[in-house]
Amino acid sequence: MKKLLVIYCFLYFFANSIFANEVNVFTSRHYDSDVQLYEKFTSITGIKVNVISGEDAALEKRMIEEGNDSKADLYITADAGRLGLFDKKDMFQNSISTIIKSKVPENFRSENWTAIAKRARIIFYAKERVSKDEIKNLRYEDLSKPNWKNRITIRQSNSVYNQSLVASLISNNGIVKTEEWVKGFVNNFARDPQDNDRAQILAVASGEADITIANTYYYALMLSGQKGKDQQEAAKKVTPFFPNQNDRGTHMNVSGAGVLKTSKNSENAIKLIEFLLTKESQEHIINNTFEYPIIENIEPNELIKNSNLGNNFRQDLETPVKEYSIYQAEALKLMLKAGWK
């Protein structure tokens, strides 16, 4: 009995897993719905999915330092810039199978990683305080103009979503113009940047600001009633608007995945990515996280459709999301220099 206990303790402490047919996932996405998908994957393929979730930079550092000894097979995170940066460190292998290629549009993947879901960073405004003329054909670029003085709220510059947005502006308009833009934009802030995207939308609803930029799923979460009745009502006071519809389209970001160079179960990892790109998985993702599907012909969630957040807007398909990583640091530099807290 004692021996058994010792063996058990040893296994508990030192052996991470003893399954042969498995895939080890490091992810900065913490959704329960993702875990449900992994469970479904296991029930179909018999491949066990082991998960460690955490903050992206910390997970990346751990994989880098573990090096060849790392057990990680697949890394999933929610920003194209971070995926690109990790790729630049030569951490991914080319895992883009023909199935992945056939399903994911080219600008939403690189050689070594692919998007599994899309996010749109759009404008939300208060109808009674923003005129029709002001909102008509609005572009991100217009938000630096003086008519928005003291009317804009947005989260801090250390938000990676803001960094990617500004990176996409640099990619399209160049550094000099973007620097000008950031200065004007920051000058229009109604309050010091703070809190998450949902708090920005609530600030517009309560009258602290007239307009904000936020990811759509925060808004959908409030509309769904998961944040209580009062926030559901508050969300209805705010109108979503997709900017840049007459040129390149609305800024898109992604949740994406890549197989590690040192992966010992790379086949399983690719299988898991392909599974996440099936119709059923994509529907599961959009219905739970309110992101946008990455493959075609997926009906949007009812809630999304009814609140004018559906698929029928022009997405920025010109700016490859992998470029965000090139300009992210530069973007933050401009933001900090302009006094964006």
Binding site: Y12, F13, F14, N16, I52, R62, E65, E66, G67, D69, K71
Partner: peptide, 10 residues
């Protein structure tokens, strides 16, 4: 050594 000291309860 790494898997003994990183990613284990120990």
């Amino acid at each position: 050594i790494k898997s003994l000291f990183i990613g284990s309860i120990f």
